[in-house]
C-alpha cells in the first residue's frame, strides 16, 4: 500500500516535470526540453501499467478494510489521471516543437500564466494526496474556474488574431491546442483533488456544481 503511494508520487513528480518542461519548451523555444518531455512520456506510461498491476494485486488480497479499499480505488483513478496528464504534456511539447520553426505570433502572456496555474494545481493536488489535506484539495477545485476563465480569454484573443491576419492561423491553432491541453491538465488535477476528498472524507464531490 505504501509502495503504491510512493510510486504514484514518483509518477506525479515525473508528470509535474513534464508539464513544466513542455511549457518551458513552448515559452523559451527550448527543443531539448521538449524532447525530454517526449522521453518521459514513455516512462510515465510504463509506470501507469506497473501501478495498475500493483493495484490489482492489492485489490485481490483479502482482508483490506474500507479505508484501504478507498485508497486503492483512488489510486486507480489518480494513476489514470497522471498518465493522461503525461500525454497532454507530451502533446504540448509536440506543438512547441512545431511552433519553434516559425516566428512567434505574439508574446506569450496568458499561456504561461495558465501553465503556472495548472502546474500549481497539479502540485497541490499531489500535496493534498500526500498530506490527506482536504482544505488543499478544495483550493485546487477553486482554481479550476480561473483556468477555465484564462482559456476563454486565450480563445478570444487568438480568434481575433486569426481574423485580422489569416497567415497566423496555423500557429494560432497550435497555441489554441496548447491552451486546451493545459485546461485539460487542470481538469485532471481537479479529478485528483476530488479523489483526495473522496479518500479523506469519503464523500463524492463530483457533479455537484
Amino acid at each position: 500500500m505504501e509502495e503504491l503511494q510512493r510510486r504514484l508520487l514518483e509518477m506525479g513528480g515525473l508528470v509535474e516535470a513534464a508539464i513544466h518542461g513542455s511549457v518551458q519548451a513552448l515559452a523559451q523555444r527550448d527543443g531539448e526540453a521538449a524532447r525530454q518531455v517526449l522521453e518521459s512520456e514513455e516512462r510515465i506510461n510504463r509506470m501507469e501499467m506497473e501501478n495498475d498491476s500493483l493495484t490489482i494485486g492489492l485489490l485481490s488480497r483479502a482482508g483490506t478494510d474500507a479505508g484501504g479499499l478507498r485508497l486503492l480505488v483512488a489510486a486507480i483513478k489518480i494513476n489514470h489521471d497522471l498518465e493522461r496528464m503525461g500525454d497532454l504534456a507530451a502533446n504540448i511539447a509536440r506543438r512547441a516543437l512545431t511552433l519553434m520553426e516559425e516566428p512567434p505570433v505574439k508574446p506569450l502572456i496568458d499561456i504561461p500564466r495558465m501553465a503556472q496555474l495548472a502546474e500549481r494545481m497539479v502540485g497541490q493536488s499531489l500535496d493534498a494526496f500526500v498530506q490527506r489535506d482536504a482544505a488543499l484539495a478544495r483550493a485546487v477545485l477553486a482554481d479550476d474556474d480561473e483556468v477555465d476563465g484564462l482559456r476563454d480569454s486565450i480563445y478570444q484573443e487568438l480568434a481575433r488574431f486569426m481574423q485580422e491576419e489569416p497567415g497566423t492561423v496555423p500557429r494560432a491553432l497550435n497555441l489554441l491546442f496548447v491552451a486546451r491541453n493545459l485546461e485539460r491538465i487542470a481538469d485532471h488535477a481537479t479529478n485528483i483533488a476530488e479523489d483526495v476528498l473522496f479518500l479523506v472524507e469519503g464523500i463524492d464531490v463530483r457533479h455537484t456544481g
Binding site: 503511494q5 510512493r6 514518483e10 506525479g12 513528480g13 509535474e16 516535470a17 499531489l126 500535496d127 498530506q131
Partner: peptide
C-alpha cells in the same frame, strides 16, 4: 516547498517529487 514538519522516516517522495 513542503510543510514544515518532522520528517520521521517518511518516504522522500512525500517531500520532493522531482524525478531528477
Amino acid at each position: 516547498g513542503a510543510a514544515a514538519e518532522a520528517p520521521d522516516h517518511k518516504p522522500l517522495v512525500q517531500l520532493a517529487r522531482n524525478p531528477g
